[in-house]
């Protein structure tokens, strides 16, 4: 009898769940809607580790890839709004979700914290016949619809880079989609696609070591990858491209609107501290990210222009048929 009671009380003590109202009192899930190891994933993990130090709770990064980033995003959008499901996403794909028909909500229905900007870099396989960006553009002009571009999916950073190339060339490319930046890069290494317009951060090392050829970047200035190795901006060969630049992925974390203000303030504080951490800054420097942290209000203001530009690039290119004006996007 005594033994049973003792065991019973032991069991009960283990079973006390955390019922207190203080947030956070358990692990937080940060959904990354892409595969592990990609740019968004690594940025998210870096921010997560900084934030969890301040918040005092572990932040689990959960990868939910698929459908160009919308599968994981929709999961978070539909999840219970209790502050334990965050999303980390690139804002290009994220803000254009309504145009692709995934949802009726826009970025204005979310609280967003922007962290980094990563420019697109155009690369070709090492044994490709194209040596400069002009070669590539000329090839696209000569054979419209035939030159293949490998990207991480519709609405990914690479897709936008490809659309800029298409606008500069005035002719279409053939879009081959993969399940994330990693597979797209692998395809370029194996020579399956003609060029890859994904984010520079994903293959900086490959360019430096010569495993792929870097043709240009979609930033407004040249980028020095390593001492002596410079990746020219596309503006050097095509100054008219200025109206599309800077093009690249802006990454941040977000959560649907509706959380109580005190929780949001805690996230504000944790985020601010995370983006100032030395480890995060080093991480960004190594990958040639620009760290441009923005709080909730600033992010919304920034996105009005950024999302508008992104939306109209897709619309003008015919990649989406929904008029961005329907969702309140303004042409920049």
């Amino acid at each position: 009898m005594k033994r049973t009671l003792a065991l019973l009380s032991l069991a009960v003590s283990f079973a006390c769940p955390a019922w207190s109202a203080d947030w956070p009192n358990r692990n937080i899930n940060l959904t990354v809607p892409y595969g592990a190891g990609g740019t968004t994933d690594l940025t998210a993990r870096s921010i997560a580790s900084g934030m969890s130090k301040v918040l005092g709770a572990t932040i689990n990064v959960v990868n939910t890839p698929g459908a160009g980033g919308s599968a994981g995003s929709l999961n978070v959008q539909n999840a219970k709004l209790d502050g334990y499901s965050l999303l980390a996403n690139g804002l290009l794909a994220f803000t254009t979700m309504p145009l692709n028909g995934y949802t009726e909500k826009t970025f204005r229905d979310w609280d967003i914290w922007i962290a980094t900007y990563a420019p697109n870099g155009i690369i070709v396989p090492a044994n490709s016949p194209y040596n400069t960006i002009t070669d590539l553009i000329n090839a696209i002009k000569a054979k419209p619809g035939q030159i293949t571009a490998g990207t991480a999916g519709i609405g990914s950073g690479g897709h936008f880079g490809a659309e800029v190339i298409k606008a500069v060339a005035g002719a279409d490319y053939k879009h081959i989609t993969y399940q994330g930046g990693g597979p797209a890069v692998t395809a370029t290494l194996s020579g399956e696609v003609d060029f890859c317009p994904q984010l520079l951060a994903e293959y900086k090392d490959l360019i430096i070591s010569g495993k792929v050829k870097g043709l240009a970047s979609l930033s407004e200035s040249d980028i020095e990858l390593a001492p002596g190795k410079v990746l020219p901006s596309i503006l050097k060969s095509f100054p008219d491209a200025k109206k599309y630049l800077p093009m690249g992925e802006v990454t941040g974390i977000m959560i649907p609107k509706g959380l109580p203000e005190d929780i949001l303030k805690k996230i504000d504080a944790a985020f601010e501290s995370a983006v100032k951490e030395k480890e995060f800054l080093d991480f960004a420097a190594v990958r040639s990210f620009t760290v441009m942290p923005k709080g909730r209000a600033e992010s919304q203001a920034f996105l009005e222009t950024f999302a508008g530009r992104a939306a109209y690039i897709l619309y003008d290119a015919g990649a989406v048929t929904v008029d961005p004006a329907k969702y309140g996007f303004k042409r920049p």
């Binding site: 592990a36 690594l42 870096s46 580790s49 692998t186 290494l189």
Partner: peptide, 27 residues
């Protein structure tokens, strides 16, 4: 050698490598 994961667990491992300031890949 390439910073490309060979399997799902390896992908998570690779992310961890990056987090600890190693640069998997050709360099």
């Amino acid at each position: 050698s390439l910073a490309v994961p060979g399997s799902a667990p390896a992908a998570v491992l690779m992310a961890a490598f990056f987090m600890h300031n190693y640069r998997p890949g050709p360099l």
